[in-house]
Design a protein around this nucleic acid. Structure first.
Lengths: 143, 143
DNA sequence: ATATCTGCAAAGGATTTGCAAGTGG
DNA sequence: CCACTTGCAAATCCTTTGCAGATAT
């Protein structure tokens, strides 16, 4: 099933509707490599349909996040970033505090972390929503 | 050396000044258990010196964060939280996405994580600034 | 003396919301 | 039909900033 079909179905199950705006936003997100801000997404979509409003972007992003079609990444700065997931699982990120770079991380790498937190604190981490701050290799070398 | 003395010294080294407002804010933070919002801190301090301004709270918190006297915790919601450190090291936190609870975590628990990230990505995590989202034990039981 | 600080008030900026008109199913 | 959506504009909300007078050292 295509993303669009799945989207339509999930919306329908919840009594929501598939509008041209939502379809357009889904498509634009699909084309993005990595993450994008709401504003940048707006500009992309606005290039195709100048009638679309920024509020619609925000409302649709929230909708998509609720059904796990996109992941919202808190950068620690003011702007949030949004990443298209489609049917893939969200993954942890490493964020360099020096250069701002986001590095994709594999969940498997963090299996020992999950175990330690479960055992020690009874805490079930949501690794797909985890962003680890630190310093990337390049910035370490740079000073 | 007391916190206040150390504060005075660090300020002096940088050409800054110890004002009654800064002293009061440091004292109020010192008395807080765990974390506090800028607004709540303002109310505490305002109770003692009604002349103090919220802008001074923010400016002082930033100053204190720069010299690692307080840690700024991004909750993922709008408001930041501030935690007094004094001379202790910042520690990681576990944040329950269901109830919002913040749990202190010991850096030692995360030693394997540090190793894994170093080895696999050459990434040096800043564990003192790490906040791990997930579900706490109580909320898991509650459903 | 003088560079740093403060209170005040106003601005900022990403995000959200109220509302009336539009539209998908 | 009619509940859900949209565009528009205004509002939010925490936080930041400009400025002139006050103050630490």
């Amino acid at each position: 099933m295509s993303c669009l079909e799945k989207f339509r179905q999930l919306l329908h199950e919840r009594g929501f509707r598939l509008t041209p705006q939502r379809e357009l936003i889904l498509e634009a997100l699909h084309d993005v490599q990595g993450c994008i801000t709401a504003e940048a997404l707006y500009e992309r979509v606005h290039g195709i349909d100048p009638g679309i409003d920024l509020a619609t972007i925000y409302r649709t992003l929230e909708l998509l996040a609720n059904i796990d079609f996109v992941k919202c990444i808190d950068t620690g700065h003011k702007e949030k970033l949004w990443q298209f997931l489609g049917t893939t699982q969200p993954q942890p990120h490493l964020r360099c505090e020096a250069c701002g770079q986001l590095i994709d991380c594999r969940q498997e790498e963090l299996a020992p972390l999950r175990e330690a937190l479960r055992r020690r604190y009874g805490f079930e981490p949501n690794l797909g929503h985890l962003t680890i701050p630190g310093t990337c290799l390049q910035c370490q070398k740079a000073g």
